[in-house]
């Protein structure tokens, strides 16, 4: 069969057509379902083979909701109430060696950033235009760099910044992950290049699970997602040397979450 495909391919077929033909030919023989220990398919019916009935998409509608709805009770708990979510989040962030700082309002958040800039003797702080971010820069005693300002983005300028301040899309209690995107967090580099990453968010941005965050991102994007979405789970790390954990491999050494509200 492979020989037949390759004979056709030799007749000037494009790589795309050759590979897709090989795929179609390969799938003519159905593969058995894996031996599941426990699967509970939606609707209680057996999940048919993908090739049942000739059409390759037959019988698959039930799988669409599987990870989010069916798998949810099997995955780590993300909490059902705002209180439990906050508790799980705080615990996760601590284990990840990320810092969480709760403040009452934006002016308290600005005071916190000011004290950080003073005690650490920052020379330049990078940020982006956002209603939660800009107020924090009001009193900082050092230079600032706005990545999405009137001038074209300058990666060298950003590389020289001590810290980057961003907003985020969501915070996932289940895993302690912060979802940033190129649309809501000042592009791609601001949340990864500076040595310290400060995220400012409101309490209502906390969601229970990864599935919830992905679901919300899909709906917010409405067919046109930002070019980058990134789940940040703690400060950059590596274990490549003797499997010993070191923070700050290439990305930020410190991740500080300021929760407002």
């Amino acid at each position: 069969m492979k020989a037949a495909v390759d004979t056709i391919a030799a007749g000037g077929m494009s790589a795309r057509d050759t590979i897709l033909l090989r795929v179609r030919e390969a799938l003519r023989l159905p593969a058995p379902m894996p031996h599941f220990k426990s699967l509970v398919p939606s609707g209680g019916s057996d999940i048919p083979s993908p090739h049942a009935g000739g059409s390759s998409s037959a019988g698959h509608a039930g799988l669409a909701i599987l990870p989010l709805d069916v798998a949810r009770p099997w995955l780590p708990d993300g909490g059902d109430t705002p209180e439990s979510q906050l508790a799980i989040l705080a615990n996760n962030l601590e284990k990840l060696r990320a810092q969480m700082h709760r403040v009452a309002d934006l002016s308290a958040a600005a005071d916190f950033v000011l004290s950080l800039a003073r005690t650490r003797d920052w020379h330049r702080v990078a940020y982006h235009g956002h209603a939660l971010v800009e107020p924090l820069l009001a009193g900082v005693p050092c230079a600032t760099y706005r990545v999405d300002g009137a001038d074209a983005f300058d990666k060298s300028a950003l590389e020289h910044c001590d810290a980057g301040i961003t907003a985020c899309d969501a915070i996932v209690a289940q895993t302690g992950s912060i979802l940033v995107s190129s649309a809501t967090s000042g592009g791609r580099a601001l949340s990864i290049l500076p040595h310290v990453h400060i995220v400012v968010a409101t309490l209502d941005q906390i969601v229970s699970t990864l599935g919830d965050a992905l679901h919300a991102a899909k709906h917010r994007g409405a067919g046109r997602m930002p070019s980058m979405l990134s789940f940040i789970t703690g400060p950059s790390r590596t274990g490549d040397i003797e499997r010993i954990l070191v923070l700050g491999a290439h990305g930020p050494k410190e991740l500080i979450l300021i929760l407002v509200g």
């Binding site: 302690g176 190129s182 592009g187 791609r188 990864l210 997602m225 070019s227 980058m228 789970t233 400060p235």
Partner: peptide, 21 residues
């Protein structure tokens, strides 16, 4: 790990309105 540190989704090059990429 409970999650790898960075799990990133890319859908193409820089979009209009994005400052870098």
């Amino acid at each position: 790990q409970q999650m790898t540190c960075y799990n990133t989704l890319y859908s193409g090059p820089r979009r209009d309105g994005e400052c870098d990429g």
